[in-house]
């Protein structure tokens, strides 16, 4: 484990240095959160049917989503991208470590660094500052209970594992496409719609629900956030959590398989 932990901590520390990007991210996410709450609020105000989720739960869902955006597979680890393009993958292979695990650790560093830089300020602002302003209705609520909080932590770990496994698939695809521009633009759009990042999943039409449940993306946002808000609990929560964990394992296995194939056909650019 020592090599992998060393890479994780070194890369994490390195990525924490991008302060300007983090500040820009916090600001964007904060305002984006307001916009989403206002839009959803307008829908709620205009709707005359019984909503599948209380407005307060939706607000919490939105804020947590904004805070934990960094966990989603929305970008690639810049060093892996550069390595594949410039042929430095060769160097990764002369090291006595498993390539998939090594890259997974780099990905985990990327996800945890961008999450920890953004999550704390957004939670502080939305959870502790907003309640004291006239916008108290738009504030992030505490977890639904102690059990919900514990389960949420577990769900967040699973979501992180899932997010990294998805990011890894895009990384592995680089071995075929060299440039990551294609998939790395398609995947985030898919993810943000199907994970619940754009609109909370319970608000989707009923016909789409089976599809949303079957896809892997729900474990990224929808499951942990609804657990926090108390909207998903008991056996239903455990089932959702188990499904997400299975998806994470399956995607890791797929990524491993593809990476091994990619390495076999490796042509190091430049002879």
């Amino acid at each position: 484990m020592r090599p992998y932990l060393a890479i994780l901590s070194a890369r994490y520390r390195m990525l924490l240095q991008y302060r300007a990007a983090a500040l820009a991210g916090i600001t964007t996410q904060f305002f984006w959160g307001f916009i989403r709450i206002m839009i959803l609020g307008a829908f709620y105000a205009a709707s005359d049917v019984d909503p599948p989720m209380a407005f307060a739960a939706v607000v919490t869902y939105v804020w947590l989503g904004q805070a934990l955006l960094g966990m989603l597979p929305w970008n690639l680890e810049p060093e892996i991208e550069a390595m594949v393009r410039e042929g430095n993958v060769a160097f990764e292979l002369v090291r006595p470590v498993d390539l998939y695990s090594l890259w997974y650790m780099r990905t985990l560093a990327l996800r945890t660094a961008s999450t920890s830089l953004r999550a704390v300020p957004i939670v502080l602002l939305a959870g502790f500052v907003l309640p004291w302003t006239p916008l108290a209705d738009w504030a992030l609520a505490a977890p639904a209970g102690l059990a919900a909080a514990g389960l949420w932590m577990l769900a967040t770990v699973v979501a992180m594992a899932l997010g990294c496994a998805l990011t890894m698939l895009v990384h592995v695809s680089l071995m075929w496409t060299i440039s990551g521009d294609g998939l790395s633009r398609v995947v985030p759009s898919l993810v943000s719609v199907f994970s619940g990042m754009v609109v909370p999943l319970p608000l989707f039409p009923d016909v789409l629900q089976p599809l949303l449940h079957a896809l892997p993306f729900r474990g990224l946002v929808d499951v942990p956030l609804r657990i926090w808000a108390g909207h998903l609990e008991g056996a239903e929560a455990w089932t959702a959590l188990g499904g997400a964990a299975l998806w994470a394992l399956a995607l890791v296995a797929l990524g491993r398989f593809l990476l091994a194939r990619g390495c076999r056909r490796l042509v190091v650019q430049g002879g």
Binding site: R2, P3, I7, A10, M14, G87, N88, V94
Partner: peptide
């Protein structure tokens, strides 16, 4: 084995040299 490719570096671009060494020692156990 040890490998040096003259046209590429195996050190971490943004890290001080000593930290690259520390990291390599962990990677090579």
């Amino acid at each position: 084995i040890g490998v040096v490719f003259g046209q590429r570096t195996q050190l971490w671009w943004d890290l001080p040299v000593i930290e690259s060494f520390d990291l390599l020692s962990a990677i090579y156990r």
